[in-house]
C-alpha cells in the first residue's frame, strides 16, 4: 500500500527517469528511420548503418578511437593501480592532490594547458598527444577504483600469508594482486570508456590530421542533424553499455557514488 506522499515521490522519480531516457530512446529510434529528417517516423531501415560502413572518415576515426582508448587505458591502469595502492598505504598529500585535482577541474583547462605544453616542446599533435592527455585524466579514476577495492579487503589475509613465511613479493603477487584484480579491471574498463567517449580534451590535443569518433560526431552535428549521426551514436552507446555493465559487475562499490 502506498501513502499519498510516497505516490507523489514515485511519480516525480518516474518523471526524472523519463527525462533521462527519452532523449536517448529518440536517438536510437530515429537511427532506424527511413527519412533524412529526425522529425517523423516514416519506416524502418538499416541504411544509415550501411552508410556508416561506407564512410571512410568515420571508419578511420573509429579505428583511432579504439587504438587511443586501448593504449591509454592500458598505461593509465598501471599508473593508476600504483597510485591507488600508494594512496591507501601512505599519507602522501602531493600524490593525493595530483590524482584528484584532474578529476575536479573543468576539462577545458586540462585541454588548453596540455595544448600549450605540447606546442612548447614542439610536439606534433596527433595520436600520441591524445594518448598522453587521456592517460592524464584516466589515472585518477583507476586509482579511485583500486583504492575502493583495497579498503574492502581483509588485512588478516596478508598477515596470514606473512606468518606462513611468504616473502613480501610473494605476498603481493599471490595474495594482494589477485584480490585487487576486480578493482583493477573495473578501473581499466572505466578508463577505456572515458577515453573512447572523451570530446573536450581530445578537441584541444588532436591537431588537424587525426580524428576520433566524438570529434567526428562534433563536426557532423555542427553542420546538420543527420540520421548517420544517430546510427554512430547508437553503436557507441551499445559499446559503452556493454563495457559499463561488465565493470559494474566487477566492482559494484565504485558505481554507487561511494
Amino acid at each position: 500500500m502506498m501513502s499519498r506522499k510516497n505516490l507523489l515521490l514515485a511519480l516525480s522519480a518516474a518523471l526524472v527517469y523519463l527525462f533521462l531516457y527519452l532523449p536517448l530512446v529518440i536517438v536510437v529510434v530515429f537511427s532506424f528511420n527511413d527519412s533524412r529528417l529526425n522529425a517523423e517516423w516514416v519506416g524502418f531501415t538499416w541504411k544509415w548503418y550501411g552508410k556508416l560502413l561506407e564512410n571512410q572518415e568515420m571508419l578511420t576515426a573509429a579505428m583511432n578511437s579504439l587504438i587511443i582508448a586501448s593504449v591509454s587505458a592500458g598505461i593509465a591502469t598501471i599508473l593508476g593501480t600504483l597510485a591507488g595502492i600508494a594512496m591507501h598505504q601512505y599519507r602522501l598529500r602531493l600524490l593525493q592532490i595530483l590524482v584528484l585535482a584532474p578529476i575536479a577541474m573543468p576539462e577545458i583547462l586540462m585541454g588548453v594547458s596540455l595544448l600549450v605544453l605540447f606546442i612548447m616542446v614542439n610536439m606534433t599533435l596527433g595520436l600520441i598527444s591524445i594518448m598522453l592527455a587521456h592517460i592524464t585524466f584516466c589515472i585518477g579514476f583507476v586509482a579511485l577504483a583500486v583504492q575502493a577495492r583495497i579498503s574492502s579487503l581483509d588485512p588478516a589475509l596478508i598477515e596470514a600469508a606473512r606468518d606462513l613465511g611468504a616473502t613480501p613479493w610473494q605476498c603481493f603477487r599471490e595474495i594482494t594482486l589477485p584480490l585487487l584484480m576486480p578493482g583493477i579491471l573495473a578501473g581499466a574498463l572505466m578508463a577505456f570508456t572515458l577515453s573512447i567517449d572523451d570530446f573536450v580534451i581530445t578537441f584541444f590535443t588532436a591537431g588537424v590530421g587525426s580524428s576520433t569518433l566524438p570529434l567526428q560526431i562534433y563536426s557532423m552535428v555542427k553542420i546538420a542533424v543527420t540520421p548517420e549521426v544517430n546510427a554512430v551514436s547508437t553503436l557507441l552507446m551499445l559499446v559503452t553499455l556493454v563495457v559499463i555493465t561488465v565493470a559494474s559487475r566487477l566492482s559494484p562499490a565504485i558505481f554507487r557514488g561511494e
Partner: peptide, 25 residues
C-alpha cells in the same frame, strides 16, 4: 544503475539528442 547508465553514454550523443528534440522540425 538506471541513473548512471545515461551518464556513461557519450557526452556528444547526449547533446545531440537534445538538438533533435529542440530542432525546428
Amino acid at each position: 544503475l538506471l541513473v548512471i547508465l545515461p551518464f556513461w553514454s557519450n557526452f556528444l550523443v547526449r547533446i545531440y539528442a537534445w538538438m533533435i528534440i529542440f530542432s525546428p522540425m
